[in-house]
Design a binder for these strands. Sequence first.
DNA 1: CTGCCGTACTACGACAGTCGTACTATGTCT
DNA 2: AGACATAGTACGACTGTCGTAGTACGGCAG
Lengths: 112, 112
Amino acid sequence: MVEISSDVIRGYNDTMILFILLNGPSYGYEISKQIKSITDEKYIIKETTLYSAFTRMEKNGFIESFTADQDGSGNGKKRTYYRITDLGMQFYRAKCEEWDITQEVVAKFIRH
Amino acid sequence: MVEISSDVIRGYNDTMILFILLNGPSYGYEISKQIKSITDEKYIIKETTLYSAFTRMEKNGFIESFTADQDGSGNGKKRTYYRITDLGMQFYRAKCEEWDITQEVVAKFIRH
DNA sequence: CTGCCGTACTACGACAGTCGTACTATGTCT
DNA sequence: AGACATAGTACGACTGTCGTAGTACGGCAG
């Protein structure tokens, strides 16, 4: 099993998180599980990486946080949810474009 | 013009350098020019990044250095050349495989 | 003959993002 | 009672990249 090094994904963790948030607000644990399942467990984001990404992206205005109950039962258990902002959308789209170029560039140095 | 962020390429600078060295020994300045021309100036490696990559890769046993004249004239002007080692070859091949997976993984989070 | 550009580096410190480790706390399953 | 999943926070270390600066030589223009 080929491991993806963090130095490669670095700079795309934010993009992955924002992608999940395109489908509506979500929270840490759920997002990490989704990334895991989308990639067939090929990439598992570390908790610390994830939560520090939240802090950074909220500071940058790419996401907004709010707290809500775990279920609709109002039983008091809270979770921190995140929602993508317009600025976050813009950033996400820019990253997608950048990815195309990056792919092209790196491919020139790959030989099989 | 879309700029490639260093956080994306990070972890592939070494691979690029090794790719150049597949065609035989080379040295810093020449390698940087080749990367620039191969990528149509889409990616320009910083000098400091390049030379610190040399140090790191030599320590890791991926490359070997030797000094030689600038031209064949033996006029005393020296350059530091680098040659890829067997271990470097192995590393390069592993990185190529890793790239395939990475591409696949990241693509799942890109929407156009 | 002076200054600038291209070549070919080295040194040093700053910074950002990731990661290891550890800790808290609740609920459920066995 | 203890393990496991959930849902995080705190803190310090590490790595690779980058900005800045400085050295040194050769060639060419003005």
